[in-house]
Design a protein around this nucleic acid. Structure first.
Lengths: 235, 235
DNA sequence: TGTACATCAGTGAACGCGCGTTCACTGATGTAC
DNA sequence: TGTACATCAGTGAACGCGCGTTCACTGATGTAC
C-alpha cells in the first residue's frame, strides 16, 4: 500500500514535470508551438515516454487549459478570502487585481485559455467549462452578497436591459444556479469584458506604449467600475 | 509603357491573390498555421513561385498585418465620414461600430494583429507602427474636435490622472503630434481597452454564451461610454 | 524472508507527413533596334 | 513590321528539419505466495 502510493506519487510528480516543461516551452516559443518532442527534450526523455502519461497531444493541452482556469480562479479566491466578508468593494477589487496579477505572471497560460486556439487542437467541449466558470461565479457571488446586504447601487440603465440580453441572463442564472437577478450577471459581464480588454492588450505589450503605466491604469479602471455601483474601496 | 503597366498589373493582381489565399487559409486553419506551401496549393502553383512576390514567409505576414491595420482604420474612417461633422457623438459611435463590424467580418485578420504572435515570425518593428496608429489617431481627432467645440465633458477623475500616466500621455501627444491634452488621450485608451475586451471575447466565442446578444451589448457599452463624456448619440 | 511473476516506465527505430527555402531550369512575355 | 535579346513567372527536384504517433522491446519496480 505504501509502495503503491509511492509509485502513484512518482507518477503525479512526472505529470507535473511534463506540464511544467510544457508551460516553459509555451512561454519561450509561443502557445502554438507546443510540441511533445520539445517537451521530451526538456525532460531528457524520449517522446514516446510521454504517452505513458497522456493519451495524446490534445489530452495534454486540455489538462493545461483546465489547470489554467483553475489556477486563475484559485488565485482570485485565495486573495479575496483575506478581505473582511462585509467589505464587498475590497473583495471585488482584490479579486480583480489578483486576476490581473495571475495573468501577468502566467502570460502564456492566459493566452492558452483566452487567445488563439492552438492549431490542430480539438477542444473536448464540456471538460473545460466547469473550470472556466469558477472565476465568473466568484464575482457573481460577491456582487450577489453586496446586493443582498442592500449596498449595491448599479447605474439605472442596468435595470433596463435589452430584451435579448435580459432573457438570456435570466436563463443563464437559472441554468448555472446563480440565483441572482439579471442586473448582477450583467454587471459581472461588463466587468469581465473591461478587465479582459486591458489584460489582452497588456499581455501582448500593446498597452504600455500608449498608457505608460498599465498597472495604475488597470487599478484605476477597476476602482472606477466598483464606484459606479456604489462599492467604494477603502484604499 | 502600356505593356510595362500590364505586367505590373498582373503582378499586383497575383500579390493580391496570394494574400487572399493566405487569409482564406488562416480563416480555416488558424493564424498560426499560415504556410506558404498551403497557399501555393490553394493557388494551384508550386511553393517556390511565391518567392517571386515575397522575400520569405515573414515578409508575407508583415504585409498581411499592415493591410489589416489599414483596413480596419479605413473601415472606421469611411463609416465616420458619412456623419455630420458636428455630430461628435454620432461620429464616435459610428467609428466604434465600424471597428467591431470589421473585426467580426475579418476575425482572423483581427487575431493576426491583436492575438497571439505567429510562431517563428519576427516582427520587423517600425513598419507596422504607422498603420497600427491610424485608428487611434482617428478617435483622438474626433474627441479633440468635440473638445475644441466645448462639448466634451468627461468625468472629473479624467483630469486627475496618476503622475506616471499623465507624464506619458503628455509625451505621447507631443511625440506623435496629436496636440491634445492628456485627458483626451486617456479617454481614447479607456475606450480602446473596453472595445478590445468585448471584441476579443466575442471573436473567440466567449461572449455570446454569457450575454446572449453580443452586438446589443457592444452597442450599449459604447453608447454608455459616449454618454459618460456628454456625447449623446441621437439614435 | 525469498522467489516467481506481473506491472510499469522508458527506449529506439520507424512511419508518413508538411514545412521553408535553394537551385538550375524552361517557356512565355515584353523591349530595342 | 520583324527579329534578337533580355526579363520575368513559374517548375520540379532536392535539402534538412521537426512533428505526432506506433510498435516491439528492455529493465526496473512492486506484488503474491
Amino acid at each position: 500500500m505504501a509502495k503503491q502510493n509511492k509509485r502513484q506519487e512518482q507518477r503525479d510528480a512526472t505529470i507535473e514535470a511534463i506540464k511544467a516543461a510544457a508551460r516553459q516551452q509555451m512561454a519561450s516559443e509561443g502557445t502554438a508551438s507546443l510540441s511533445l518532442r520539445a517537451i521530451a527534450r526538456l525532460l531528457d526523455v524520449t517522446a514516446p515516454a510521454l504517452y505513458r502519461y497522456f493519451a495524446d497531444r490534445d489530452d495534454l493541452i486540455t489538462d493545461l487549459i483546465v489547470d489554467a482556469f483553475n489556477a486563475i480562479a484559485d488565485a482570485m479566491v485565495e486573495a479575496e478570502a483575506e478581505v473582511a466578508r462585509d467589505d464587498y468593494a475590497g473583495r471585488l477589487l482584490t479579486a480583480m487585481l489578483a486576476y490581473r496579477r495571475w495573468a501577468m505572471e502566467h502570460r502564456t497560460d492566459f493566452q492558452l485559455i483566452y487567445g488563439n486556439p492552438i492549431p490542430g487542437y480539438n477542444a473536448p467541449g464540456e471538460i473545460t467549462v466547469e473550470a472556466a466558470t469558477r472565476a465568473f461565479r466568484l464575482v457573481i457571488d460577491i456582487l450577489g452578497a453586496a446586493n443582498a446586504a442592500g449596498i449595491l447601487q448599479p447605474p439605472p440603465e442596468t435595470f433596463d436591459l435589452p430584451a435579448s440580453i435580459e432573457a438570456h441572463l435570466v436563463w443563464l442564472s437559472e441554468q448555472d444556479g446563480y440565483h441572482q437577478p439579471p442586473f448582477v450577471l450583467y454587471i459581472t459581464v461588463v466587468g469581465w469584458a473591461r478587465i479582459h480588454g486591458m489584460i489582452m492588450l497588456e499581455i501582448f505589450d500593446n498597452l504600455d506604449p500608449v498608457i505608460g503605466d498599465s498597472e495604475a491604469f488597470y487599478r484605476r479602471e477597476v476602482t472606477s467600475l466598483c464606484k459606479s455601483m456604489n462599492l467604494i474601496p477603502k484604499s
